[in-house]
Amino acid sequence: MVLLPDLARSWTGGRRVERVAYAVGAVLLLAGVVHFGVFLVDGGPWEGPVSWRKPTTFGLSFGLTLITVTWVSARVRMGDRARRTAVGLLTAASVVEVALISAQAWRRVPSHFNSTSGADRAISLTLAAGGAAIVVSAAVLLVAAFRKDAVDAPDMRLAVRAGLVLFVVALAVGAAMIARGTIAVRSGDPGHTTAGVLKLAHAVAMHAILVLPALSWLLAFTRWTPLARLRVVQLALVGHLVLTVVVGVESAVGVNPLEAPAVADVGAGLGLFLLGVAVLLACYGVRRFPRRDI
């Protein structure tokens, strides 16, 4: 199986800033797993502003996102300075976000929308600054990806560009979550409840940067023509867009996906179905039509 050696080359052949990002991402993933273990031992609520859920999910999400975005950026032609800026900012911001959220969990105080003390206000402001750094990182990558000949293969080009666009959409949703929560707190309402309704939309859009390029990478191990591979990625993109729109509308109007109307369920089901078909096609292609030159 040539898939694992190819992934290993991302480390052995990676630039220094990329290897650092991969290592940091692995540590963040481990931090998420450790905090889940703490939750299993310590107990307590899973939801709410003070719980072990936040360091668990933030560690896992930031670790996975950092590794994914770094891996994707390695497939984009850009200058060394731009690459160091984009990957370096994302790495630093990921560490800061997970570290501060974890620290607040251990202190048993909310990490967001918390101005109880000077330290809490400073942490909230630092978390916001970390979010701004991630936006700058994403903007640098997005501009580079849309330059001519930034990515060779048509299917990977579409996957990277669409994934980064949806990544920026996810960041915009995250900013909207912070804004809504801040307004709610000033009105005397719990900020985490108001902001939390957008969590699913944020997550679905965020992980397109993983799903689409990973699918294109898998298709590269088939003997299918570039056009055939592009069609599979397009199918997956349509599915992801449908799912993102449905979940986004549900979140915007405050509808629980488990209690959504039938039309929303059909839309979400269609999106998942198209994504599933694309993944199955890629797996089928690797199995039945593997490349002979690798």
Rank of each mutant, 00 (worst) to 15 (best):
V2G: 07
L4N: 00
A8Y: 02
R9E: 03
R9L: 00
S10F: 08
G13T: 06
R16V: 04
E18W: 05
A21S: 11
A23C: 00
A23D: 03
A23S: 05
A26I: 15
V33F: 14
G37L: 00
F39I: 04
G43I: 01
G44S: 05
E47T: 00
V50C: 01
K54G: 04
G59Y: 13
G59E: 12
S61M: 15
V69Q: 09
V76D: 11
M78W: 09
G79L: 10
R81G: 15
R84A: 15
G88S: 15
L90A: 12
V109C: 13
P110A: 14
S111V: 11
S115N: 15
S117A: 13
G118E: 11
D120K: 05
L127I: 02
L127Q: 06
A129T: 06
G131F: 03
V135Q: 11
V140I: 06
A153M: 03
M156H: 14
A159D: 07
L164N: 07
L166N: 13
A170I: 00
A176V: 08
A179N: 05
G181S: 14
T182A: 12
I183N: 06
V185P: 01
G188I: 02
D189H: 08
T194N: 03
V204A: 09
M206P: 03
A208K: 06
L210H: 14
V211Y: 15
S216I: 09
S216T: 14
S216M: 10
L218E: 13
L219Y: 01
A220Q: 13
A220C: 11
R231H: 11
V238P: 07
L241W: 13
L241S: 13
G248F: 00
N256F: 03
N256P: 03
E259S: 11
A262Y: 00
L272V: 05
L274Y: 08
L280E: 10
A282Y: 12
Y284A: 14
G285H: 01
R288G: 08
I294G: 06
